[in-house]
Amino acid sequence: MSTPIIRLDLVTSSGAPFLAAGELTQSEARATSSHSHARGQLMGALSGLVSVGLDKQTWVVPAIHAIWIPPHCVHSVRSYGPFSGWSVFIAENRCASLPPEPRAIKTSSLLREAVRRAATWPGVELDQAQTRIAEVIIDELAASKEESLALPRPEDPRLVRITDALAGDLSDNRRLEQWAAWAGVAPRTLSRRFVAETGLTFAQWRQQARLLRALELVAAAVPVTTIALELGYDNVSAFIDMFRRALGTTPGRYQTAETPENRAAVR
């Protein structure tokens, strides 16, 4: 069983403070099976990378992002290697102004500092100063912009066969027509079903899968050239350009932003 980030009564008890937070660092990987709770949860990584399974999607959480999980939303969690992360649990009656669906957000320095402060609280009724900090966390979450860090999973067995094969080898550059022939489906049908079931074209789905895998590898400090080759890019420049368009920065700068020294600098 995974070590709780905070005391379980702060998640389950209606008499607990309306906001509770915790940080946890452990030398082993973290994995929790599918579960839900009445409180909304905002969770992020302090270092490395965490993935969250939500419904038919997988969400990747790099260290400068967080995932909002609304109340009663079934989810699972796993880390890539040793776990270092944080969570904020918000009472259901305070979630009305917060996003009704799961979303990824980029965390601001203000939000990270407020969470860090809240993680030191003893779990009793909040005083006035603590209440103000808790309200800042809720306001920052409510005002946050949604980031695209999810990878939807199709249901059609033919599409699942393709996406599973791609997930196993993202360097595979076969065109849609070639994949359609491999899976025994007409190209037009494949194209139409991809959009209908995932909201993405085949090319967009593959690029999103590559981006999320790139984030995993960047978090593991894999050299950019190695990442580009593993993901099927002809050259490093093409990979860096894709990464910059998606996240607004280069892989190198993104990796630097996740180092403990730089995280400490914004605290």
Rank of each mutant, 00 (worst) to 15 (best):
I5S: 01
L8V: 11
L8Y: 00
L8C: 04
V11M: 10
S13E: 06
S13I: 03
S13H: 08
S14Q: 14
S14C: 09
A16P: 07
P17F: 03
P17H: 04
L19P: 00
A21W: 05
E23H: 15
Q26N: 13
T32K: 08
S34N: 11
S34V: 08
R39E: 03
G40I: 03
A45R: 07
G48N: 13
S51G: 06
S51Q: 13
V52A: 12
G53W: 12
P62K: 05
A63T: 13
H65P: 00
I69N: 02
P71Y: 04
C73L: 11
S76P: 01
R78E: 10
G81Y: 06
G85F: 06
V88T: 12
I90C: 02
A91H: 14
E92Y: 07
R103A: 09
S108G: 09
L110G: 01
L111I: 04
A114S: 09
A114V: 09
R117V: 06
A118I: 04
A118N: 02
W121A: 10
W121F: 08
V124K: 15
E125K: 11
A129K: 08
T131W: 15
A134V: 00
V136K: 09
I137E: 08
I138D: 03
D139G: 04
E140P: 01
E140M: 01
A143V: 00
S144E: 03
K145F: 13
K145Q: 11
E146K: 14
S148V: 06
A150F: 12
P152G: 14
D156V: 08
R158S: 11
L159I: 12
L159G: 09
V160L: 11
I162L: 08
A165V: 11
A165S: 12
L166R: 07
L170N: 11
S171F: 09
S171R: 05
R175Q: 09
E177T: 14
Q178R: 14
A180C: 07
A181I: 09
W182Q: 09
A186V: 05
R188H: 12
S191H: 10
V195T: 12
A196W: 00
E197V: 08
G199C: 05
L200Q: 14
A203G: 04
R206H: 07
Q208Y: 03
A209W: 12
L211M: 07
A214L: 11
E216I: 15
E216L: 10
L217Y: 05
A221G: 02
A221P: 00
V222T: 08
V224D: 11
T226E: 10
I227A: 05
I227S: 02
G232L: 03
Y233H: 10
N235L: 02
V236F: 01
S237L: 05
S237D: 14
A238N: 12
T249G: 03
T249D: 15
P251F: 13
G252N: 09
R253C: 00
E258V: 07
E258L: 14
P260R: 12
A265V: 01
A265I: 02
R267Y: 10
